[in-house]
Amino acid sequence: MTTWPTQAECRRFYGAPGTNQTILTLPYDMTYDGKVVKRMTINKKCADSAFRALTKIASEYSASDRAKLGLSIFGGCYNNRPMRGGTQLSMHAYACAIDFDPNRNQLKWGRDKARLAQKDCEAFWAAWEEEGWVSLGRTRNFDWMHVQAARL
């Protein structure tokens, strides 16, 4: 498991937003706005880790289960913007965060409402946590769509 930087250390670790990026070919197809996604832009330093987690997810869940649970609905990775409601850069600006199924895991929803908070998603979270990625949902009970290669 990698020890990722804290959010405050991301610029030094990952570089300026828009730099040090690579294209990651996904181990399973995802969709974004109904269109098939086979690749994503991600920071080079966390790309191999993300690929390992996604590969494990592909082995733990069938394609139909990934679709049913929203694990194949891509919500984005790189997006050079501040955090919602804040002025500090989002982890998406460093391309070290990935969102899944945003419609059923909205930012302010807690475990009582978010789809990815359900028991049948446990293996999904375990795959990320084995790589040291952090879920805001599991740690703070909001933004269940989001996983990041940065500590809080």
Rank of each mutant, 00 (worst) to 15 (best):
Y32P: 03
T87L: 12
C77S: 13
W109I: 10
E131V: 02
L69E: 01
R138S: 00
A114C: 07
W4V: 02
T25P: 00
N43D: 05
F74L: 00
H146N: 07
H92Y: 02
S64A: 13
Q118W: 00
G86I: 03
M91R: 09
V37E: 02
G76S: 08
A114P: 02
G15E: 04
D112R: 00
A63Q: 10
N105C: 09
R84V: 09
S59M: 11
W109P: 05
Y32H: 14
V37D: 02
K35C: 02
C96Q: 07
D99I: 10
Y14F: 15
A127F: 03
A58S: 10
R12T: 14
A63I: 14
V147G: 00
S62I: 08
A53D: 00
M145P: 10
N43S: 06
R138Q: 06
S49C: 09
H92F: 07
L69S: 03
G132F: 08
L116V: 05
Y32M: 14
D143K: 10
S64R: 13
G132L: 10
A53M: 09
N80G: 03
L26G: 13
G86P: 00
R81F: 10
R138L: 09
I73E: 06
L152Y: 07
V36F: 10
A47M: 07
P17R: 10
A150G: 00
L69Q: 01
S135W: 04
F142T: 11
L26V: 09
L107Y: 11
E129L: 03
S59E: 11
E131F: 03
K68G: 01
D48C: 04
I73A: 03
L69T: 05
N43L: 11
M145D: 02
R138T: 07
R140E: 12
T19N: 08
E60Q: 14
F13E: 04
F100K: 08
S72T: 01
R111V: 12
D112A: 15
R12Q: 14
Y78D: 08
G70M: 12
V134S: 07
H146A: 03
E131S: 06
L136C: 03
R11C: 06
P27G: 06
G86T: 06
A117Q: 01
Y78C: 07
T25L: 00
Q106W: 00
A8E: 05
A117T: 01
N103D: 14
D112N: 13
L69P: 00
A123H: 00
F100C: 06
A117P: 04
L152R: 15
A53H: 06
T25K: 06
P27E: 06
T25A: 13
L116A: 05
E129G: 02
T6V: 04
S64Y: 08
A127V: 12
A95C: 05
F100G: 04
Q7M: 09
Y28S: 05
E122K: 15
F13I: 02
R52C: 04
M30P: 01
D65A: 14
Y94C: 05
I57P: 07
M83R: 15
R138P: 05
S72N: 15
G86D: 05
K68M: 09
N20M: 08
A8H: 11
P27Q: 02
P17H: 13
A50F: 11
L152W: 06
Q118F: 00
A58H: 03
I73N: 08
N43I: 05
L136H: 11
R52G: 04
T55V: 06
D99Q: 07
L54H: 02
Y28H: 12
A16W: 07
G70R: 15
I57Y: 01
G18N: 11
Y94K: 09
